[in-house]
Amino acid sequence: MLNGIWAGMLLIGIVFAALHGTLDQVGQGLLDGTGEAVTLAISMVGVMGLWCGLMEIARQSGLLQALNKMCRPLIRWLYPHIHKDDPVQELIATNMVANLLGLGNAATPAGLHAMKELERLEEQRRGAKTEREDARPVPKGVASNEMCTLLVLNISSLQLLPVTMIAYRSQYGSVDPTSIVGPAIVATAISTAVAVVFCKIMQRRKKR
């Protein structure tokens, strides 16, 4: 996807500049941009180092695992048709906690693994007959309620602390780079609340 977007930016920009006689500024802009990127990445080393260091303490001291456990009742409520001993809950919890803490590198593998386990769960349901209208399995190649919920919650963004955004803001001379932390948490809570309500409503609807 990025291939097209990036090429589009450059080509549209250059053609537009040629038509409007701004080609010199474009050349200058290209060079300025690269310098800016390097300064930015260097300033990121500090913030990312601090954050990853703290997260390593959280991991080694068992804090992440404790958070996983705390998520369980919430997950049982969000995914009511998963059996309470099913191992997929662990994966969903890991994905959720990693998203909350902004650990994208840990969230994605856990999320993808959870998707595979949800597919296995759906396969089991296809084998078993059920009378319940809301627990009937979906055919192969169709997203189950659990899959939809996992995706919508992931996309609603759960991240509490926008670490990279703070670094960018401070690099561009913000007087108070962390002043967006509160608004970002509230905005994330709003988008996630909307996602949760939507999922709960859709889970109750009959499947096709």
Partner: peptide
């Protein structure tokens, strides 16, 4: 964290340059 910051550098160079072109061209 150091690796994360260094590994986003190529992406940043490409995209900031791209946006700069869009900006500078008007």
């Amino acid at each position: 964290g150091f690796h994360v910051a260094v590994s986003i550098l190529p992406t940043l160079i490409g995209l900031i340059a791209g946006v700069r072109v869009l900006r500078a061209s008007g």
